[in-house]
């Protein structure tokens, strides 16, 4: 497994653990009705698990197993940029939502996430090819 995949996948595991923790807190609160403030965790719970866990894991595994050129994975710089942009964007969206920050923070986070996917595609697109090409 290449180094970048280990970063993607370990980050995704951290988001899985964090997202599950927030989800468990909300579900327990639904049962015990402790404090409605727990519901503020819902958008962050969704963001961490959909983008942080599932999308990020998919990127890490795709970077690892998609066909290579001889032994090379092509220009890996966009894929590293994707890792930085995805996690930066995700944290901006999560923090912005949780802390009630100005709307431009979440907007910047969303833009970073889109840029992350575009950067990832720059590396992955040419690797989607028949074996031996």
């Amino acid at each position: 497994m290449p180094r970048l995949s280990t970063w993607f996948i370990k980050a995704s595991l951290i988001y899985l653990a964090t997202g599950f923790t927030l989800g468990a807190l909300m579900l327990a609160n639904k049962g015990l009705r402790l404090d409605p403030v727990f519901w503020r965790l819902l958008p962050v719970h969704i963001e961490l698990l959909l983008t942080g866990w599932i999308v990020q894991l998919a990127m890490g595994v795709a970077f690892w197993i998609l066909p290579r050129f001889q032994s090379s994975r092509g220009d890996v710089r966009p894929a590293w940029a994707a890792f930085a942009l995805l996690n930066g964007g995700l944290l901006l969206v999560a923090a912005g939502t949780l802390l009630g920050a100005p709307g431009w923070i979440a907007l910047a986070g969303r833009l970073a996430e889109v840029a992350a996917v575009a950067a990832f595609a720059l590396n992955a697109w040419p690797r989607v090819k028949p074996i031996g090409v």
Binding site: M1, S5, K10, L13, I14, G23, A28, G31
Partner: peptide
């Protein structure tokens, strides 16, 4: 039903933590 939800939350949370614990050491460079 309240306690069913609390138990459900606890069991799913434990599942997530055990999965992360067992997977972490397998995410490594060759």
């Amino acid at each position: 039903w309240s306690w069913v939800l609390v138990l459900s939350a606890t069991l799913q949370w434990l599942a997530g933590m055990l999965f992360v614990a067992n997977t972490w050491g397998r995410v490594k460079e060759r």
